[in-house]
Amino acid sequence: MIKLKSFILSLVISTSFISPLVHASSTETHEKITPKVIFFDVNETLLNLDNVGKSVSKALGGRDELVPFWFTTMLHYSLVSNETGEYHSFAEIGIASLEMIAKQQNIDLTPEQAKTAVLTPFRDLAPHSDVVEGLKRIRALGYKMITLTNSSDAGIAAQLKNSNLAQYFDGSLTVQNLQTFKPDLKVYQWAEKEMKVAPEDAMLIAAHAWDIAGADKVGWKTAYILRPGKALYPLADKPDLTGKDLIEIAKQLEADAK
């Protein structure tokens, strides 16, 4: 009984020391995020790729399970392009990746069919349901808003026009001008120079962990949209803001602007 009382007493004493520390930690002041320029990724971040997925699946004989494999293959070979210095547009890499997977799976697919399956839906994508409200709210805060994508100049122009999102942005930057794909750090550094903004005054909003990791590495603030099926890369630093959609990100920016 004496030992039990001693244990309880020591637990109470230790808890009395720990409690203030826990309280202090929970009431830490949040660093306000107030960038001068906000860069936006577009595909998946703003625009819904469901139609692309359906088109690619149809081209692959209805094999829905191959669609994520196609997208990661496209990303993989964009990085191969970075390393070899042989640039092809993101659309060209997407078409080539689709042809590769069709051959690997013994699915009959002509180059023209692959081109149609990728290009037709990619140029005419609808925004996610949260995007218009989210963009309006961020726009109201007075930030300069720029798209920064792996698409071509013509590709992003068509996408923004067809989705009716062009009105919310002050400009667009694409890797076509640099011929190097994100998340190569040179892309983010080039973008900040183009916009004449210091790294600490730049922010990226994206739904891709690899994109967030690249922007963070050059000193940008980052906001991650946790779209369904997405997850953060555990070995990278956590983003400054996280939300399930753009509206949640906008609300956090509004709170920081007060």
Rank of each mutant, 00 (worst) to 15 (best):
R63I: 04
Q113I: 02
D130K: 07
L79R: 14
L75Y: 10
G94Q: 06
V132A: 13
M74V: 05
S129Q: 15
A96F: 00
K115T: 14
A140L: 04
P121F: 05
A140Q: 10
A96D: 03
N82G: 07
F71W: 05
S129T: 14
Q104D: 11
A140G: 03
T120L: 08
F69G: 06
Q105G: 11
H76S: 08
D64Q: 09
T120E: 12
L125S: 01
F71I: 05
N106Y: 00
V131L: 11
E83Q: 12
R123D: 11
I95M: 10
L66H: 02
L141Q: 15
H88S: 06
P111L: 05
G134Q: 13
I138H: 07
P111M: 08
S97E: 11
L135D: 06
L79S: 13
L141P: 14
G94I: 02
Q113R: 03
V118R: 07
L119M: 13
W70P: 01
E86K: 00
G94A: 09
I95C: 07
A140E: 09
N82H: 07
E86N: 07
K103C: 05
T72P: 04
S78P: 03
M100N: 11
R137M: 12
I93W: 02
K136T: 15
T110R: 05
E83I: 14
S81E: 12
L141G: 14
T120H: 10
S129E: 14
L109I: 13
A117I: 01
F90V: 03
M74A: 13
P121L: 05
Y87E: 03
Y77V: 01
S97M: 12
E99Q: 14
T120K: 11
S81H: 11
G62D: 05
K136A: 15
D124E: 11
I138A: 07
D130M: 10
E92C: 03
E65H: 11
S129I: 11
H76Q: 08
E92A: 04
H88E: 04
P127V: 03
